[in-house]
């Protein structure tokens, strides 16, 4: 009897191991490539560590954080300000425009696929290609493509990326070319709304706006929430699109987002300050995400929840 129980227990453990083995890769992956660096990053942020020297440097307490908001304060607040400004301006425009496009393209009509492909095309541009392309199309010279187009409409040349006054605006404008990625998600969500809902609405004689505000938008709230939270997280980490631009320094200085600043510290071998700033960013993202999750009562997850 006792023996039977032990073998039964043994079998249970073996059963668990053989199941767990399937998810082992991701467990190892998170332990090695996510948690270890997260924790060591926190560790480095309390030391004086350089990328060029092996191992962890001497412990300096909160010195790096004091530096961030002391010696570097002006630059850091500037970066935080630009990053927030970018997020606050670009994210709502992106969400609204991509949703509007999706409303146009969710119904099947002749040529709809071609339009979807065309709007999604700029999303396919690799970061480096997009950087090279926009540096050439949107610089301030009279011969840049955008200025040639402006001239054709009789407008004066615009400085675009080459002036500290217009670079930020240009960057937001160029970012709008990638709304196709959210658009595709909206289309999928809108197409998943059961036809019966629209049929009922038709019977009731609802007009387009009633359908939009009473059916389509409420049914899309999970996707609004997803796009919103991922949009916040991604815009706060904007980096590749900036560093791949080959533009006048005056313009590039306006695009001094937080991650660009982190990379600058890293590049100048100052690993510990880079880690400290990345933890500041992490806390900012965590707080904003938590707030967004807290106020998600408006999200409709279907009947069963």
């Amino acid at each position: 009897m006792d023996k039977n129980m032990r073998t039964a227990q043994k079998r249970k453990i073996l059963e668990w191991i053989s199941s767990f083995a399937f998810v082992l890769p991701v467990v190892i992956g998170i332990a090695v490539f996510t948690l270890t660096p997260m924790i060591s990053s926190l560790g480095y942020s309390f030391t004086r560590t350089y990328t060029t020297v092996a191992g962890m440097g001497e412990f300096v307490g909160l010195k790096n954080y004091e530096n961030l908001f002391g010696v570097y304060a002006e630059q850091i607040w500037d970066s935080i300000g630009s990053t927030f400004l970018f997020t606050v301006i670009s994210l709502p425009i992106t969400l609204v425009l991509s949703f509007a496009l999706a409303l146009f393209l969710a119904k099947d009509f002749k040529g709809v696929k071609v339009f979807r492909v065309v709007y999604y095309l700029p999303v396919m541009l690799p970061a480096v290609v997009s950087g090279i392309l926009w540096s050439s199309l949107a610089n301030g010279s009279d011969t840049s493509a955008l200025n040639v187009v402006l001239a054709a409409f009789g407008a004066k040349p615009f400085a675009f990326y080459d002036s500290e006054k217009t670079a930020f605006f240009t960057f937001i404008l160029m970012g709008l070319f990638t709304i196709g990625s959210s658009m595709i998600l909206w289309i999928a969500q809108i197409k998943a709304i059961p036809d019966s809902m629209f049929e009922v609405a038709d019977l009731e004689g609802a007009n387009y706006f009633v359908r939009l505000f009473k059916i389509i938008i409420p049914m899309c709230t999970p996707m609004i929430f997803y796009n919103l939270i991922m949009g916040i997280i991604n815009s706060l980490q904007i980096f590749s699109n900036v560093i791949t631009l080959n533009i006048e320094p005056a313009g590039k200085e306006q695009l001094n987002f937080i991650v660009v600043r982190i990379y600058d510290f890293y590049n100048s071998t100052d690993l510990s300050t880079a880690c400290a700033l990345s933890w500041v960013l992490f806390v900012i993202i965590a707080v904003i995400s938590a707030l967004t999750f807290k106020f998600n009562k408006w999200v409709y997850y279907g009947e069963e929840v």
């Binding site: 880690c275 990345s278 992490f282 995400s289």
Partner: peptide, 17 residues
């Protein structure tokens, strides 16, 4: 939800080691 930059910078040390 974790910002990738928080991992990528310290990973340099790990990879370097």
């Amino acid at each position: 939800m974790l910002p990738s930059i928080c991992m990528q910078i310290p990973l340099y040390k790990l990879y370097f080691g």
